[in-house]
Amino acid sequence: MRKVSLPDLPEVSRNIMTIALNWLGRTPLTRRRALWGLALVAPNVLGLLFFFGIPVLNAFITSFQEWNAIKPPVPIGFANFERLANDSAFWQALTNTLKLLIFAVPVGVASALFVALLLNQQLRGRGIFRTIYFLPVVTSTVAAAMVWTWIFQPRYGLAGNLLSPLGLRDLNWLTRPDLVLIPIGIVMVWQRIGFDMVLFLAGLQNIPRQLYEAAIIDGANRWQRFRFVTLPMLSPTTFFIVLLSVINAFQVFDQVYVMTARTTRGGVGGSAVTLTYFMYDRGFLKSEFGYASAIAMVLFLIILGMTILQLRLQRRWVYYESEGGV
């Protein structure tokens, strides 16, 4: 078999790429296997192509047009992108998104890991707890965000009651421009913990027991075992979760939409507007679909850039057992 060198991609995509590249090779066996593989992924790929690829292509074309959805589109070159660079509302949305990301990704990943470690113990009723932590994932974001809206209502809300010993009962969480991102970030984290927890649990269960046994024989204490066995062995999972969380944070929309719907949509002075909300606002509220598509393209480039950056950085901290230790 021809040996192909590849960048350090996660396991799944690496396998797919290996298959694809070998398909170009001459061996009939690999070719047949490749065909099988392709046939098996075809339904998904075709679905993606039709229901995702074509709209994406359309959005790409629209981003170079001025279009209000009723009158025929007018091509305007890069004008949408130039306008975007000078639009303070765009920079505000980007800043808000980054703030949410800086909060939600570390806090979310750390909490998920913590919960996963807890629920990886031999614990009575472990299944029930795992279900409870996973529930937010399968709850409709809209319904959940509405409940959270009540929680953050001053005076009558749960948050206010819990914080009242600190004298913080009457905080207008959802209208104050300086506070509004906090509840939104909390809901983001709360909703993601369950999903990340399941991934972490799978990762934890893949760590060979003998590593811990060896560590114990070497005299490692609990913390050292966590630090020098669990964390490195878990790093591919952690990497995957961080990657997904970052993408997720860039796409936050529902929470903003629902939690500010009853007061000022997008927060007072745009204080809660995220990039996707900004896109929705320009597209559906202001009927500037060309401009909204340009925002979508920029968002795509940002996420792509972040992902490539992370793929590069992973070499420094992600440890794949199959490749041999460092």
Binding site: T149, W173, R262, T263
Partner: peptide, 10 residues
């Protein structure tokens, strides 16, 4: 009452 106390401006 304030908007926040009523839970919304509508």
């Amino acid at each position: 009452p304030s908007v926040s106390i009523m839970g919304g401006a509508s």
